[in-house]
């Protein structure tokens, strides 16, 4: 809990400076004070919530798909050496595409439905997941690998018993990086055109010069990402019990 004090203080400090700057300005339409952002957001809460849920749903579904894809690709790369040479370059190329330009094209091709959001979330998040898995597999102890071979264990037993658990710490690092992109990717797709969602909410609010509501939606987006981020820590805590015991030993003086 004590660890939360410095970031909270920094956040409050930032809000205070923002409040002062906004009060000094005459035009509150351009830079609304945080107090006004909160109160406007609260007043519009039912509409805001109605647009948050589709964003959250698309994010989670897209992220789940990204994980399935990442696991499949990582296994392919780990199992067959030639897959690394074939798939890896394509994956890197996929990461060079400018999302800003891609998002409107996706909407053009796939419409206002769920599909363009899912594609964008997958595109943005699968790469750190694959890399963290593939590099995680490679961290498995070579002696343990030789031990598995000496018992006659085949590929699947070795993967499940050694390579996959070895990759878990690295995987959660990748998961944390990926999840911070996920919500933003959905919002981006929605911003380019959608029926519901925080992205289109921001778009509409911006077009009617309601900067306070734009910023309220921005805050909701941040909170969503933060919650998902915390969730990855929770999942890691549950999935890596041996590390938990390690941390208890090595967390140092408090």
């Amino acid at each position: 809990m004590r660890r939360l004090i410095p970031p909270t203080a920094a956040l409050l400090g930032f809000a205070a400076i923002w409040q002062l700057a906004a009060n000094a300005k005459t035009n509150s339409q351009v830079l609304p004070a945080p107090s006004r952002v909160i109160s406007s957001g609260w007043a519009d809460r039912s509409d805001l919530l109605a647009n948050t849920l589709p964003t959250l749903g698309a994010t989670l579904l897209g992220f789940a798909l990204a994980m399935v894809l990442a696991f499949s690709l990582s296994i392919l790369i780990d199992r067959w050496a030639f897959a690394r040479g074939t798939v890896m370059p394509l994956m890197v190329i996929s990461q060079t595409l400018p999302i800003v330009v891609l998002a409107p094209l996706m909407v053009l091709w796939f419409g206002f439905g769920l599909l363009p959001k899912l594609i964008l979330v997958v595109l943005v998040t699968f790469f750190p997941l694959v890399v963290s898995l593939v590099e995680g597999y490679a961290t498995s102890d070579p002696d343990a690998g030789a031990l598995f071979r000496s018992t006659g264990a085949g590929w699947w037993r070795t993967f499940r018993g050694l390579r996959l658990p070895s990759a878990l710490p690295s995987f959660f690092t990748g998961l944390r990086i990926a999840v911070t992109y996920a919500v933003v990717a959905t919002v981006f797709a929605e911003y380019a055109g959608s029926e519901h969602g925080l992205g289109i909410y921001m778009q509409v609010a911006k077009n009617s010069f309601r900067t306070d509501l734009v910023l309220a939606a921005v805050i909701v987006t941040s909170v969503l990402t933060l919650l998902l981020f915390l969730l990855t820590h929770l999942a890691e805590w549950a999935a890596i019990p041996w590390r938990r015991a390690e941390n208890r030993q090595w967390d140092g003086p408090r």
Partner: peptide
Amino acid sequence: FAWMPQSGALLPWRTALQNATLGIELT
């Protein structure tokens, strides 16, 4: 042959007992 590598090669995610049984579980 039953081979024991120099490092011991215990798996960090298995308890002492589970590490002891790893060999026979693999077979």
